[in-house]
Design a protein around this nucleic acid. Structure first.
Lengths: 105, 105
DNA sequence: GATTAATATATCACTTTATGATATATTCTT
DNA sequence: AAGAATATATCATAAAGTGATATATTAATC
């Protein structure tokens, strides 16, 4: 799959969490909670993805005054990309639901 | 990301297309069309994923009487997995939209 | 105030997933 | 029968994701 900014599920979850300033560990916990444990992103994935999102400027270092926590937040660009990806995902769901409901004789 | 049957975007698109009997090439074209070219899955991804979906029994070989086309269709199990993944995806979108709309002061 | 548990970030080595390029065969068109 | 379109397939590589582990800081408990 290619073209345009296509977010993977993991990246999408993390960006959705970073609509509010949060540090990595909190994001991990939040995802675990909000999905009732069905989705869990471990530290390796978490910090790998954060690093990449910083490079892409989809998030920025919001606060690192605390010696151990680094909080991040979506940039405006990040918000736009996330918004676009929501639309793409709505279309995907629509396609799948239409397919499923057409009873095959 | 782990646990339960989590479909990747590419797999989701392909399974959504196979709610109707179709052959690989047709699936590729359908995805390209329905997403207006924003998403395209090439042959390497297509046939790699089809092979895996067969192994997992999410799809089955529906018809291969035509010497060049092999049509596939979701199994009941495949329909269930797709249905569950739709729900997961709806929740993801909800999370992201809630996050975005809470205006941060 | 030392020890343990919890919080938090980070990386390494490996696996899984995705894909560009390419090959091959069949059918359709002219 | 030559060329274009259709269709499937694989190889070698790249990209993405992750289990295990390491390390440091702070909080809790004794």
């Amino acid at each position: 799959m290619k073209q345009i900014e296509q977010l993977t599920d993991s990246v999408f979850y993390i960006m959705a969490a970073l609509t509010t300033p949060r540090h990595g560990y909190a994001v991990m916990n939040l995802i675990e909670e909000t999905t009732k444990g069905t989705v869990s992103i471990g530290p390796a994935s978490m910090y790998t993805i954060i690093k990449k999102l910083l490079q892409q400027e989809f998030i920025y270092l919001y606060d690192d005054s605390d010696s151990r926590r680094k909080t991040y937040l979506l940039t405006e660009k990040g918000r736009e990309v996330l918004t676009e990806d929501i639309e793409r995902r709505k279309v995907m769901i629509q396609l799948a639901e239409n397919g499923l409901k057409e009873e095959q004789s």
